[in-house]
Amino acid sequence: MSDTPESAKISSRNQSMKKRKLEEQVAIGVLFLGGLLAVGIVLAIFSFIFTESLPLVTDPDQRNEMSLYHDTENEEEFARTASVFQTLDNMLGQIMWQPVSEQPLFSLWPLMAGTLKITLVAVVEGTIISFLTALAIAFYLPKRLRYAVKVITELLAGMPTVVLGFLGLIFFATYMQEITGTTFRLNAFLAGTMLSLTVIPIMTTLFEDIYSSYPKEQIHAAKCCGLFDYQIITSIIIPATYGKVFAAGLLGFGRSFGETMIVLMCSGNAAIFNMDFAAGARTFAATIGAEMGEVIVGDTHYSMLFLLGFILIVTTFVINYLSQKLIRKWTYA
């Protein structure tokens, strides 16, 4: 036993205990505030984009401006009667996107068609190329090259999209036009092809993960039965993983439909309502990027662009949710 009295020891221990408890409470409190801030930021982003687009429905002036049956004789009277349906009619009942004119026309159809065209090209090309590349990495490439190919593919992911857009505009557009013989130098196909370069690294990594996480025992067993690699792929791996492949394609879609810079630079930005891949196209994101700079705050056009942003958020959310569900549903555990 030491000489110091027991009580003093205990009180000093209590002292330090108190200090530690205080520190703990302060630190956990700060961390909790951080968590709250995260919630705040998330809520702020979601709700802001939504509320800024709300005047399209709630503000009579905007409803009035949106109405296709604009009555210039008695403006006041009309402002009170223009209904939400006339706003909707402008968005869905005609097919022109002309935001700056006497009667502003905000049809969503040309933008939808443009987004669909460009992302379709990007996702189809991206899926085919990354599917085959992932198969090569997982099965066919010599072992030494596999890692190198993976790393090089991922280099594409680190490439700023504005660089891809720039190269598409200045360099690839001319050659693409010579090969495909389209009338327009910048078209949906070019934009989609450049866009597929941003999708390829993501999807290749996903596919590669899917194949390399497939139970090795089954592959070994199949090999023991004398199956060739292609038979393993077509009869075992593809049937077992097609759901995940679909989910990966969905994620690629989610990544590419909101891409702005490439589309802004390579697509020609013509808001036309058709499914001609050789013609120009304009997506939701590119419309925001192109028009937000000149818009007047609080205008109908301003609210409309926020509505486009809100559509982008909702679509991202739905796609993410669906692909998560799909990935979980098709796990082979």
């Binding site: 937000m292 942003g309 991202t316």
Partner: peptide, 27 residues
């Protein structure tokens, strides 16, 4: 909820952040 919100935010197109920045931070 927070985790899935953060994952969704990570996938939201970057142009939407531009809209948010303009409406929220600037204005």
């Amino acid at each position: 909820i927070i985790m899935s919100a953060i994952r969704t935010l990570a996938a939201v197109p970057s142009i939407v952040y531009g809209l948010f920045g303009f409406a929220f931070f600037v204005n």
